[in-house]
């Protein structure tokens, strides 16, 4: 065969080699077929400076929330009556409050409450919304219209009012606050999950799974949801910012985390009384709320671009 060297046959041979190479490559990577996609998105994500900045700030805040005692100079409820209302100085870099507590330490401990409530609220909302959205999309028909009408009803009540109503019914504590925030935000997740599943549920891999006898639950959890993850993750990231904001807002109007716990919104609300003379009581906690939301938004924006199929080319 090597003797014959017309261009057509050469082309055939080269194509053959190429095909074999590709085939071999495919065979080698069958076990880890989903890794390169995520890895690629990850690479695209960290290539964006703003997304990386957001991630770094966010990780710093998470570390603060997990180990505040390592950085904080004092406890969050250490009252020192000899130094009330100290302006920011070398010892208390964010000053002290009306009970002589170090504002910087309180802000550090506050990360735990604000971000923790936000995190769990998003998880709960994802669980409720994800289940409803997948049922609506997968079964369609009557289940879909009942669930969608229900979501319409919940959405037509402003979410902050719904959260206020729920916290005042359940009582004000951390668990109820988390429940209230997740109930008032789950319709958004339900809609996103529904849309994401609707767009892939007619594809062949779903049919294949059904053909080999997979149960509905298995199809939803093992085949559909993992493939619909991208928009869900983006929504969850951006939603985390919203949940942190709702937590702070509810605490600000006295329906969230109660003093002396140092949630950022609670601190703002307590500092509001003294705003005329002692500005630092209001400025610093708010700055951290903003920083948290800022980092989450930057990260979410980067994530959206990294996972956007249109930019993959």
């Amino acid at each position: 065969m090597a003797k014959i060297s017309t261009p057509a046959i050469m082309a055939f041979q080269i194509n053959q080699e190429k095909r074999e190479r590709i085939f071999k490559k495919k065979n080698d990577s069958t076990d880890t077929v989903s890794v390169p996609l995520w890895l690629e998105s990850w690479r695209r994500l960290i290539r964006r400076p703003t997304a990386t900045l957001g991630m770094i700030i966010f990780l710093a805040l998470v570390l603060m929330a997990l180990f505040p005692s390592l950085i904080a100079p004092e406890g969050y409820d250490n009252q020192q009556y000899t130094k009330l209302f100290q302006p920011p100085n070398a010892q208390n870099i964010m000053g002290t409050d009306n009970l002589g507590r170090d504002v910087f330490s309180r802000v550090l401990y506050g990360a735990r409450y604000s971000m923790g409530v936000g995190f769990f609220a998003v998880i709960f909302a994802l669980l409720i919304g994800g289940t409803m959205g997948s049922i609506a999309a997968f079964y369609g028909g009557r289940a879909d219209s009942i669930i969608m009408r229900f979501l319409d009803i919940v959405l037509s009540i402003p979410s902050i009012l719904l959260a206020i109503a729920i916290t005042s019914i359940l009582g004000t504590n951390i668990v109820n606050l988390t429940i209230a925030i997740s109930i008032s935000s789950f319709p958004h997740y339900a809609r996103i999950v529904r849309a994401a599943i609707l767009s892939i549920k007619e594809l062949e891999f779903v049919e294949a799974a059904r053909a080999i006898g997979a149960s509905d639950t298995r199809i939803i959890f093992r085949h559909l949801l993992p493939n619909a993850m991208a928009p869900i993750i983006v929504q969850a990231t951006v939603g985390l910012g919203g949940a942190i904001l709702s937590c702070a807002a509810l605490s600000f109007i006295g329906l969230g985390i109660q003093p002396p716990l140092p949630e950022w919104g609670t601190m703002l609300s307590a500092g509001r009384e003294y705003i005329r003379e002692y500005w630092w009581l209001v400025v610093f906690p708010g700055m951290f709320i903003m920083l948290a939301i800022f980092s989450v938004n930057l990260f979410g924006d980067g994530l959206r671009d990294a996972l956007d199929p249109r930019l993959k080319q």
């Binding site: 910012g241 703002l268 509001r272 500005w279 209001v282 708010g286 939301i293 800022f294």
Partner: peptide, 22 residues
Amino acid sequence: SLLGVCMPVFWSSLLLILFFSI
């Protein structure tokens, strides 16, 4: 605009009150 989106309204209200009213 990014800062504006991230700023909680209850905080910016307090800051504006602090600056323009007080």
